[in-house]
Design a protein around this nucleic acid. Sequence first.
RNA 1: GCGCCCGUAGCUCAACUGGAUAGAGCAUCAGCCUUCUAAGCUGGCGGUUGCAGGUUCGAGUCCUGCCGGGCGCGCCA
Length: 577
Amino acid sequence: MKSNIEKILQQALTALPEYSGVLENQSINNMIERTRDPRHGDFTTNIAMRLAKTLGKSPKEIATTVIKNLPDSDLINSVDIAGAGFINFHISQLALHRELAEILKSGSAYGRKAARNTPKVLLEFVSANPTGPLHVGHGRHAAYGATLGNLLEAAGYQVDREYYVNDAGRQMDILGVSILLRMLEKNGESFTFPEAGYHGDYIRTIAASVDEDISDTSVSLLLDSVPNNNKEEMIDALIENSEKMLGADKFRSIRQQALESILEDIKDDLEGFCVTFNSWFSEQSLTDGLIDDALAALEDRGMTYQKDGNVWFRSTDFGDSKDRVVVRANGKTTYFASDIAYHYGKRKRGYDLLIDVLGSDHHGYVNRVKAGLEAFGYAADSMEALLVQFVTLYRGGDKVQMSTRSGQFVTLRELREEVGNDAARLFYVMRSNDQHLDFDLELAKSNSTDNPVYYIQYAHARIESVFRQLKDQSLEYNEGIGVEHFERLTESHEKALMGSLSRYPEIIGLAATKRSPHTLVHYLRGIANELHSYYNAHTFLVEDTNLRNARLTLIKATQMVIANGLSIIGVSAPAEM
RNA sequence: GCGCCCGUAGCUCAACUGGAUAGAGCAUCAGCCUUCUAAGCUGGCGGUUGCAGGUUCGAGUCCUGCCGGGCGCGCCA
């Protein structure tokens, strides 16, 4: 609908080169918007005010000239000037009718743009360390990332989704030690489990399934000469001893078995949550040359230097607060080196726009990664970090206490089992991602108006039930008749609903551009509200065949828009509730 | 101390990247089922957008400084 207005306005501007010259290449798309107040028409543009200063003319004078040059269109009833110089467009009923017909014609494709010549996007999200099951915080990342991916695709972007598996480094060793200790414990040894190890019950479960001969070692051997005054030093010593006792191969095998077990659980969990990825990128694989390549490329560009035996990256050249070590004196590369290499590799794989969904606690590293990309000659804004704030669970009015350290966290799986996938997916994205999320378990489960999941789904199901009722009354639905008699839709509820439905493609575009799935949730709630109001105010199954079919066609289109929107969020659209 | 995010109705949140009189739900108060699902609808009450300046035709939105909350500031990952 908005694109119609854009075309019409563009024609006027083309006829006025002295105006369009000032605008140069600016898109007029974001100078046109929906009005808030229906008295101001349906669309408005502030273009006259924007031009006023440069042209040295009054906004009203400009507006008058623009209006004079607008082509005739049966999509518009009238255009007027109001306020400080707004040009307000009042669209015709015909325009709404055509849009309604378009919804029915396009069906599940309505609101989706065909893939265009847009940047190829690599969307990385969740990427939780494979050291344990996903918890409710990761669930928000999963829901947000998945929905964002769907939105971007609907908006015409080409999107690949990737999960970065942090399967290298110290944390993997800690995982290995944790497993090993639980295996020994199962063999009857008793001891105090190290504080820095992973405490969750899943460690015991995995330990029981690991197939490895550990008779070479024992707890007493492992704990030999291990410092116990510092938990970090203690765990490092345990790692060292484990490798010594078992041999590096055997220890690695235990570690990998644990990793595979956990990763399998994560994959299964996400799949059950309808969150899918095109690729699972292993951090370990970076050591097969990519890190070396990246570091060599940096060196070629003079972006690194030696100091204190370390290799440093000149990240301060790109606005970072300090230079960063990429290779330690002991020859080991840092995590940061992996990160640079990983993002360098993303670009090398042909992606133009890198979107990372990160926990808000990772914001500190965004500039560093951007600095890395810039050092390779890529624009800093080719990488975009979207920060997701924390989730707090509430049961009724009570906060659910969680602590990752002690292993006492609510898992995503538990949440899904308790409230269901639909409620979880919608609740996770109904708030702006940069806001803390209070997730009320009781509300998510409740079958009431307060629960937006049920409210929206019910609107969809209610429409379906009208069509069931139609059959019970031995009546038939004829869409052709409906489309031919849209002029019978004269009630205020009907006009309002038609207007709102026509906004759907704009909402998809907006939500994608702003990376804001919650915009879509709010919109769908509004549509559901209008449907329920309409339902209460008027009877659809009336005697008059033309009117009946027109109304049924309108609610059919409404149902289509709700289904399309819900599918982007990853929520089902039930036929019956 | 430095950096990032946030502060909007009693509560939880919107506000179309600067637009016209800041909107929803919950709570509360008053109504609506002989009728396609009352898992619904209608109306009332509720605001100095944390505070103070600034930018301009116009600010919840942008800039500066405070106040308050969250999170970061390792050769950890």
